[in-house]
């Protein structure tokens, strides 16, 4: 029958029109910025630098190895290595980034920097309100703006952060066990051969 399709279409329209006022799952409008939807754990917006402990300058995990700078697809990271070394949060002297800038206007939120980082030092933030009225200076984030605590990281990506912490603790335990074994071996060697001046640490460097 001619006109059947139009009638069918109109019936569908009427059904949906009425439904849009009562159906709960269709009332999806949120009054941003007063109201906000719950953040999604996997979401990634912009990188930040993780630090341990209370002081961001002392606890920055980044050792300025520049792998992320090299691997970044749009080349939005700029790093300058420090001339001196500074003890990190466990007390080991490390090179640190004297300058670490990321350009918001260039970054494409791809997370490659996070994946290539061997030190779990750079992670993705979920904060998306990065707009600023300073078009050039304000869009370049320096390391003091990028540094965020490990607690903050746990707050936004709890599952991932717990995994990272477990992995770091395991690595640390391994290093400590190795150091301990080396010290013991050295002590044993020293006891056995008192003439040998410097005992070599046991076990080769792996990785």
């Amino acid at each position: 029958m001619l006109g059947e399709g139009i009638l069918k279409g109109l019936a569908e329209t009427a059904k949906n029109f009425a439904g849009s006022y009562v159906s709960k799952e269709r009332l999806t409008t949120v009054q941003y910025p007063e109201e906000r939807v719950a953040p999604i754990e996997a979401s990634r917006v912009f990188p930040f630098l993780v630090y341990d402990g209370g002081d961001w300058q002392a606890g920055l995990r980044c050792v300025a190895c520049q792998i992320c700078e090299k691997e970044c697809p749009p080349k939005c990271i700029y790093i300058e290595k420090s001339k001196d070394k500074k003890p990190d949060y466990v007390g080991k002297p490390q090179i640190y980034p004297a300058r670490f800038d990321i350009d918001v206007s260039v970054c494409m939120s791809c997370q490659i920097c996070v994946e290539v980082c061997p030190f779990e030092a750079i992670k993705m933030d979920t904060e998306f309100e990065l707009a600023t009225d300073d078009r050039f200076g304000g869009l370049l984030r320096s390391r003091d703006q990028l540094a965020k605590s490990n607690e903050y990281y746990h707050g936004i990506h709890p599952t991932e952060a717990a995994e990272v912490d477990a992995r770091l603790a395991e690595e640390k335990a391994k290093v400590e066990a190795k150091a301990k074994a080396a010290a013991e071996a050295a002590a044993a060697k020293a006891a056995a051969e008192p003439a040998t001046p410097a005992a070599k640490p046991a076990g080769g460097e792996s990785k």
Partner: peptide, 8 residues
């Protein structure tokens, strides 16, 4: 050109 502070 637009000025960005990215040194390269």
């Amino acid at each position: 050109y637009e000025p960005t502070a990215h040194d390269a």
